[in-house]
C-alpha cells in the first residue's frame, strides 16, 4: 500500500539540464531566483497621494484606529532585509525595505480576534491569521532600496509579510479588519491557498 501512495518519480525531460544558481537552503520548494522585481497585479495601479493616504485597523467590536501619513511617520521606523517569494515561482533574495512594524501599530489595539482581512486602495483584499502580523514578521512599508516605494510595487505604502507568498503583502494597503471568523480575500476566493506558506508550498487550495 505504501508503494501505491508514494508519488511516482518525475520522468526525466530529455536534453534538459537547467541551472543551479540558488543556495538551496534559502529557496522554498518549486521556486527559482530572480534578480529582477517582477510586478503582478490583478488590475490597474491605483494612484494614491500621500496627503490622501489613510490606514485603519478595525476590531471585531467595531472600534477603529486611524493613521494618516504624518501619524504613520511619527512611529518608530524600522529597516528590514528580507527574501521575497511569489506564488508565480520567483524568489528575490536580500531586498531592503523601511517602514513600521505591525507590532507597533497593533500595540494599542484591543483585540482577541484570530483573523485579519487586509484591504487595499483599488479594492484588493487578502486574508491571514493575526498571528502572522505579529512577532516582528509584518510591516507597513513605504521605502524600498532607500527610496519611496514606487506605485507599481504598492506605493505609497504596502503591507510586507515576507514569510508568506507575496500576494499576502497587499500593495496600496488601506486597512485591516479583525474578526473571529476566517474570510477569504481576492486570490484566496479565486483558488489560492488560504495560508500561503512558501516553505509548505501552499500555493493553491486543492
Amino acid at each position: 500500500m505504501d508503494d501505491e501512495q508514494r508519488p511516482a518519480p518525475s520522468p526525466v525531460t530529455r536534453g534538459f539540464t537547467g541551472r543551479r544558481r540558488a543556495p538551496a537552503a534559502a529557496l522554498p520548494p518549486g521556486q527559482y531566483v530572480t534578480e529582477e522585481f517582477p510586478v503582478l497585479s490583478a488590475g490597474p495601479t491605483p494612484r494614491v497621494e500621500q496627503d490622501d493616504w489613510r490606514f485603519s485597523v478595525t476590531t471585531e467590536t467595531g472600534s477603529s484606529h486611524h493613521w494618516d501619513w504624518n501619524g504613520l511617520h511619527a512611529l518608530p521606523r524600522e529597516r528590514v532585509e528580507v527574501d521575497l517569494h511569489c506564488v508565480t515561482r520567483w524568489s528575490k533574495f536580500g531586498t531592503h525595505w523601511s517602514g513600521y512594524s505591525l507590532d507597533t501599530l497593533l500595540e494599542r489595539v484591543e483585540t482577541t480576534a484570530a483573523y485579519a482581512m487586509v484591504h487595499s486602495y483599488g479594492g484588493y483584499t487578502t486574508n491571514l491569521p493575526v498571528a502572522d502580523l505579529r512577532g516582528g514578521r509584518a510591516w507597513i512599508v513605504d521605502g524600498y532600496d532607500g527610496r519611496p516605494l514606487d506605485p507599481v510595487h504598492g506605493g505609497p505604502a504596502r503591507l510586507l509579510v515576507p514569510h508568506l507568498y507575496l500576494w499576502k503583502s497587499a500593495k496600496w494597503v488601506s486597512g485591516i479588519t479583525l474578526s473571529h471568523t476566517e474570510e477569504l480575500g481576492f486570490w484566496e476566493r479565486a483558488g489560492y491557498h488560504p495560508a500561503g506558506d512558501p516553505w509548505r508550498e501552499e500555493r493553491y487550495a486543492l
Binding site: T34, P38, L40, P44
Partner: peptide
C-alpha cells in the same frame, strides 16, 4: 501599466480592467 491607466482614464471602472503582466 500604460494601457490599464489609459483605460481607466477613458472611463472604464478599474474593477472591469483585468491585467496579466509578463516578466519583470
Amino acid at each position: 501599466e500604460v494601457v490599464a491607466d489609459l483605460l481607466v482614464a477613458a472611463g472604464h471602472p478599474a474593477a472591469r480592467v483585468r491585467t496579466e503582466r509578463f516578466g519583470g
